[in-house]
Design a protein around this nucleic acid. Structure first.
Lengths: 302, 302
DNA sequence: TCTTGCATTTCAGACGTTCAACATGCAAGG
DNA sequence: CCTTGCATGTTGAACGTCTGAAATGCAAGA
């Protein structure tokens, strides 16, 4: 606990905690470092560190000289650890910047030095951040010095445009030859949606609701096996998050969305893909309409 | 001529050379540095350098103390300069790397140091390159060290998948509300296509043919005003270039393409967008079929 | 033989420095 | 008055160094 785990190590820690917590790794299961290393695509070194961290939390037990095993009473601490991932520090700045920008607190044009000053970033951090933002399309380098924020995202049309792209891609993805929705994945999606209907919508933060929707749609489109379609959707979703932050969410409409998500899953699992595509079209159209109703909120600013 | 022009300066040089060559800037026109600087969004400094370069080429004349003017006989050297842009050094490595990868000369997994060694790159250069490649989706950082090339692009399906994304996006873009094709842009597109039919197809390199097609489609989709659709198309086109390099082009089919391009322009300018969308669908479908016929070539490797 | 634990080697990111390129203010001239 | 030319201040990218982290090889033990 004294050490601050690096990204790789903590990723492994959380992945294993998840599996123990979910019961995928039963108590007493052996955990050979080499096996785990292969699975995560890393060497045994960070795996060993991760196991030591897990041992400190009582999730696994170390038998000196013989290896690591899942602790008999490991599921509880695993569940505790599984929840709280440390938030990326840079992401916080990213959202702060997006918020500042959308609220009009950042000028159209600004130098990198000014941004570093404002957000307290090092050179490298600012570089990463702005590269990411530039890739998402809401800022670009100016010739010469500095950066220019593009006006695209501040217009109310932007959100609508993002939905129209989804309307073009998502139904089409369901009709891709070779479409195959993994049953296990479908079951997980179904469980999430049903959990939402059974009270989850009230409990979840609006951030979590957005995440859930994104994951559902990306899973459905990803099953098409067309990486270009999936990537286009992922990109538009990353930007859409910024826009959605500024709309008030009507929690009621998430019930309808969840039911529609389930209906689409039903159709897909029954192999009725044309109907599923039509349902997806209707679903997105409905979401778009309910969004258009909330549109005045966008224009008033914060 | 002795100096090696920086990117900003050479961009201005070529932009001005283009305008002089096209006759947009008539002989004797005055070229105030401040005006040009505002137009390009930079300061007077690089503009002054660019003007000096143009003076060396005889495209403009400097009247000491009074400023720069387009040279009476400036159009010829301008046309000469307008053609040959200096190719980005990093781009050459990029294509070499793509070529090596698609030909199987690069392993699935490789460390950054090995890549730097192989292509003679500095740390920063390799970073830029791999970030770009990662953004395009054909390589990704491995946890730990090194990079992993994704298998996606080496499969023959990839090219087909890229067309199916375009098939979803492009016709839809023509039906976007607010679609407006700038008449001047339409005229330029038309001129290019007609030039192609009138012998341009035989003269152009296959690289130029690809460029021409991309520009046409991106112009058409860009007129939708939906930045998400345009960006999705641009991204898929960047990757598609790599795949197309490995297919043999049948020059004959470009005649048919050019005619279809013109027919779509006709429909758009007549405001018959639904029909244009349908024609675009048919056009892409035809291209995809002719590509499928060439598919065995992809599988044999170089 | 397979495993862990340790030591060595390799690697890439962070940091600070240097330098070329750009912005800007000012003086001089048409 | 507007323009150019020059001098000064600012910015960001390239380079080299350094440090922490990961890969790898090897020995010991179950």
């Amino acid at each position: 606990m004294s050490e601050s785990p690096t990204s790789t190590v903590s990723a492994i820690v959380h992945a294993l905690a998840d599996e123990v917590s979910a019961g995928a790794l039963p108590a007493g299961a052996r955990l050979p470092a080499q096996r785990l290393a292969d699975r995560f695509g890393v060497s045994r070194f960070p795996v060993g560190q991760a196991l030591r961290v897990l041992a400190e939390h009582g999730i696994v037990v170390a038998t000196p000289g013989r290896g690591f095993f899942v602790a008999p009473e490991g599921r509880l601490p695993a569940a505790a650890l599984s929840g709280r991932r440390k938030p990326d520090g840079l992401s916080a700045v990213y959202f702060a910047m997006a918020e500042d920008r959308l609220a009009g607190r950042l000028p159209d044009s600004i130098s990198g030095a000014a941004l570093r000053e404002r957000y307290g970033l090092s050179r490298g951090q600012l570089g990463q951040l702005l590269d990411r933002i530039a890739a998402e399309g809401w800022a670009e380098r100016r010739p010469g010095y500095g950066w220019r924020f593009s006006a695209v995202l501040t217009t109310p049309d932007a959100l609508e445009g993002s939905y129209r792209l989804r309307l073009a891609i998502e139904p089409a993805s369901l009709l891709e030859p070779g479409y195959r929705l993994d049953p296990a994945l479908a079951a997980r999606c179904r469980a999430v949606e049903e959990g939402m209907l059974a009270g989850g919508i009230e409990r979840a933060s609006s951030d979590a609701l957005y995440e859930r929707g994104v994951r559902y749609h990306e899973a459905i489109v990803g099953a098409s096996g067309n990486p270009f379609m999936l990537e286009a959707l992922q990109r538009v979703n990353r930007v859409r998050r910024l826009l959605v932050y500024r709309t008030l969410v009507d929690r009621q409409r998430f019930y309808r969305q969840a039911r529609e998500h389930l209906a689409i899953l039903d159709l897909l699992e029954a192999g009725r893909r044309e109907e599923a595509a039509e349902a997806m079209r209707a679903h997105l159209g409905a979401v778009m309409e309910s969004m258009a109703a909330a549109r005045p909120l966008l224009e008033t600013g914060r």
